[in-house]
């Protein structure tokens, strides 16, 4: 199926028709089964609503993500770490650690953009902070805030034509902060409550905010790293 990766010529027409027929048959079967099965089951909405007061937050999605099913979110941050490890520039912390920033190969930047970015960046940072805070009660949270922060980071590095040097120890700590804080909080609360990631009810809100704050920084750093990793190696075409 993927034997000819990135060939420029398309598959023969006959093969394409067979693929299309197969995909269509599969899809239509699924559609028919879903259609005749009728309305979806009520799911876990009732359970979530009953336990929501004990979760330390008011937004049910945040309660599911960071309390009821926090283990999934822990592993989700580990998925980000996998790709971070794969994309982080080669080199160890001892070598190549002279500079905090590495320069990007970019042309000159016009003064208008510099001025506009100077206005925009603080505003985005404030909005990101708001999104993180508001996640407890309304839609928002670590990923949204992290994505905004990363956007600010990309904007500023394009203006300054510099990227953080991800070989340095502080940058690496920033990349793993979310996962590290998550695991450590999970283990520490287990001393008090007896179960991994079982937050004491009174402190749940604070602990969730702490985890989300660390995750926001790590997600922002990771997305910035993805951008810089891909921007540095962009093929000249």
């Amino acid at each position: 199926m993927f034997n000819e990766l990135d060939s420029t010529k398309p598959l023969p027409v006959g093969v394409r028709w067979v693929c299309a027929a197969g995909a269509a048959a599969l899809t239509l079967t699924l559609v028919a089964m879903v259609f005749f099965a009728g309305a979806p089951a009520s799911g876990l909405s009732g359970e979530v609503a009953t336990r929501l007061p004990q979760s330390g937050v008011e937004n049910p999605v945040t309660a599911v993500l960071l309390n009821f099913r926090s283990y999934d979110t822990l592993l989700e941050i580990a998925v980000l770490l996998v790709v971070v490890v794969a994309l982080v520039p080669a080199g160890t912390t001892s070598a190549n650690s002279a500079d905090w920033f590495t320069s990007l190969r970019l042309g000159a930047v016009d003064p208008m953009s510099v001025g506009f970015a100077g206005l925009l960046a603080p505003i985005i940072v404030v909005v990101a902070g708001y999104l993180l805070w508001v996640g407890a009660s309304r839609p928002g949270g670590a990923f949204q805030a992290g994505a905004l922060l990363a956007a600010t980071g990309i904007l500023l590095s394009l203006i300054a034509r510099q990227m953080p040097n991800f070989c340095r120890l502080p940058a690496r700590l920033l990349l793993v902060a979310g996962l590290l804080v998550f695991i450590l909080v999970g283990l520490i609360v287990s001393l008090a409550t007896g179960a991994f990631l079982h937050f004491p009810q009174d402190f749940a809100g604070v602990l969730i905010l702490l985890i989300e704050a660390a995750a926001t920084l790590s997600i922002a750093a990771a997305l910035l790293l993805f951008y810089s990793g891909l921007a540095q190696t962009e093929p000249a075409r």
Binding site: P40, S42, G43, L44, S45, V61, A63, V64, L65
Partner: peptide
């Protein structure tokens, strides 16, 4: 239909 938060998560 049930505004279930679990699939959103």
């Amino acid at each position: 239909p049930h505004s279930d938060p679990v699939p959103h998560a």
